[in-house]
Simulated scan of single mutants.
Amino acid sequence: MQKLTPKEFIKAYLPYAKDSELKTGVDAIFTLAQAALESGWGERAVGNMFFGVKAKKDTPENKRQLLTTREVLDRPDIQFPEIISVTKRADGKYEYRIKDWFRKYNSPEQSFTDHGLFFHENKRYAKALEVRYNPYLFAEAITKAGYATDPNYATILKGVITTIYNNM
């Protein structure tokens, strides 16, 4: 896949984000920004996986894929399907380069809708859903609820939200 400019990404994927908002209530701009961040503006959307949602052990084989990713965790002894490297950071946490199982989709539409439903299906996001119509507050709330391991995730995601708004 190729990396798109923000304007190209918005043109290609905003319709899916709006459709997902109608189905799930999660703000389309938030969804689009998270898709841009997680997929590197479309460059890493292998298998239409725009959001970095991990597959579960019982996910059918044709709906999952083993991909390289980065995790920031508190311990150096966490198990993954494949560990490429573990590096201690200045803040005492450990940065992992790993391969892990992620969801795979037949279309962007499936990915975007599944993303919105993901927040409704996981109880830890109940408080976040109270602010789902404000992309900036929702970014903070899902991060606080544990969406990503990067401690700067909300700040980075809010920057992408601003980039989306500036390119519409």
Rank of each mutant, 00 (worst) to 15 (best):
I84S: 07
D74L: 13
K127E: 15
I164L: 09
L22M: 10
E43V: 11
E95I: 01
L67G: 00
K99W: 04
R44I: 02
N134D: 14
W101M: 11
R89H: 03
I142A: 07
K93P: 12
I83C: 02
Y165S: 07
W41H: 01
D114L: 14
I83F: 00
E95A: 04
I142R: 05
K7A: 13
W101V: 03
I29W: 00
Y147W: 11
D100I: 12
T163Q: 15
T155E: 15
E82N: 07
N152Q: 10
P108C: 13
A141M: 04
V86I: 13
T24G: 09
T68F: 02
K56Y: 09
H120F: 10
D58I: 08
R103N: 14
D114R: 00
Y165N: 12
E61L: 10
N62V: 10
F138Q: 01
Y147S: 08
P60T: 03
A45C: 02
L37V: 07
R75E: 09
E82C: 00
K54I: 07
T149C: 14
E109S: 12
M49K: 01
E38M: 00
Y153I: 14
I142C: 10
L117N: 14
L32P: 10
V131T: 05
W101F: 13
K88A: 13
Y147F: 10
T5D: 06
A33F: 01
N106D: 15
A36V: 01
V53A: 09
A126W: 10
I78T: 02
L129D: 01
P15H: 04
W41M: 03
N122E: 02
D77S: 08
W41L: 07
F9N: 04
L129R: 08
L129H: 02
R132L: 04
Y125I: 08
T155P: 03
E8Q: 15
I10H: 08
F9L: 08
L157Y: 01
R89M: 14
R75F: 12
L22G: 14
L73M: 11
D19F: 06
L157S: 00
P60H: 12
A28V: 03
Y165A: 10
G146K: 11
N48T: 08
A55I: 06
E71T: 05
K54V: 11
R70D: 06
F9K: 04
Y133R: 13
W101Y: 14
T5F: 03
T149F: 03
V72H: 12
N152H: 12
A36L: 03
F138D: 01
L73T: 07
E43C: 05
G47A: 03
M168H: 09
A55P: 06
K18Q: 15
S20N: 07
L32M: 14
Y94N: 06
W101H: 06
T163P: 00
P151K: 00
D150V: 09
A126S: 15
A148K: 09
Y13N: 09
F102D: 02
Y136G: 01
Q34R: 05
L37E: 05
